[in-house]
């Protein structure tokens, strides 16, 4: 149930044969995957595996060289999709507008599209900031917030849209373990509360196995495993084994 007391349903996302090169370097090598409505789908992989590039394609910020991305069966690049389905991306850096206050950032979607009166927008902004634990920061500038707070403000900005599809780009990078858990919980609770389809890109193993309904593992522009967290954990693929079990190896002092 959302704030208005109505049930929201997430959308489905189909990625079909996406290829993308930058110059000589092929970053996406024919990605195929399907995200079901309302699930938390995590794309996990090492840095530079093409996760964030895939995310930018899914939300329509970049166009692939080949293949297509469908949201509820419609191409993400068709003119209708942006107005028909509410989608939001929480950027790795937060990407808050530095010239606006936190409150103006969070309410930007509503004010620019003139969806509510200024008083209603202020009320919604305060509500959403409280949800992400940022009560009282509405008049601050983004530069006055810590990295974790900026990320939570970016989540609040996404919540205001009441999205049917929400994409998170490395939501826990640069965060301390406690803040990472808070963000992970927030992603999970939000998904359960409004049924939004959540697509998370991360190299954080704890986050992925903690919140995902399904996980895809990317390596060098390809999906090398896809399934429930337990299935991925049991995978015998050497890259996945190495990724999951990577740890410091330190000899005890004599």
């Amino acid at each position: 149930m959302n704030d208005n007391g109505t049930t929201q349903h997430g959308v489905s996302v189909q990625v079909r044969g996406i290829r993308r090169s930058y110059g000589e370097q092929e970053v996406l090598k024919g990605i195929d995957l399907e995200v079901r409505p309302g699930e938390i789908f995590v794309i996990m992989g090492a840095s530079g595996s093409g996760k964030s590039v895939l995310l930018r394609h899914i939300i329509g910020l970049e166009a692939p060289d080949a293949g297509e991305i469908l949201v509820n069966g419609e191409s993400v690049h068709s003119s209708d999709v942006a107005s028909k389905y509410r989608m939001a991306l929480v950027f790795q850096s937060g990407a808050l507008l530095n010239s606006l206050t936190v409150g103006e950032n969070v309410g930007l979607y509503l004010s620019e599209h003139r969806l509510k009166s200024p008083d209603e927008i202020r009320k919604i902004v305060l509500d959403k900031l409280e949800v992400v634990g940022l009560k009282g920061t509405e008049d601050k500038l983004p530069t006055e917030l810590s990295g974790g707070m900026r990320k939570r403000a970016a989540i609040a900005r996404a919540l205001v849209i009441e999205p049917e599809l929400i994409l998170y780009d490395e939501p826990t990078s640069e965060l301390d373990p406690v803040s990472s858990v808070v963000i992970g919980d927030e992603i999970y609770q939000l998904n359960k509360r409004i049924g939004v389809t959540s697509l998370v890109v991360s190299h954080d193993r704890d986050l992925a196995f903690g919140i995902a309904d399904r996980i895809a593992v990317m390596h060098e522009g390809e999906i090398i495993a896809l399934g429930a967290p337990d299935e991925v954990k049991r995978s015998q693929h050497p890259v996945i084994r190495k990724f999951i079990h990577a740890d410091f190896k330190r000899q005890p002092k004599a």
Binding site: R56, L61, M87, A88, L89, A95, L96, L97, E112, I161
Partner: peptide, 9 residues
Amino acid sequence: QEIDALRTM
């Protein structure tokens, strides 16, 4: 990425 953020909204 502020412009990207505007585009996604």
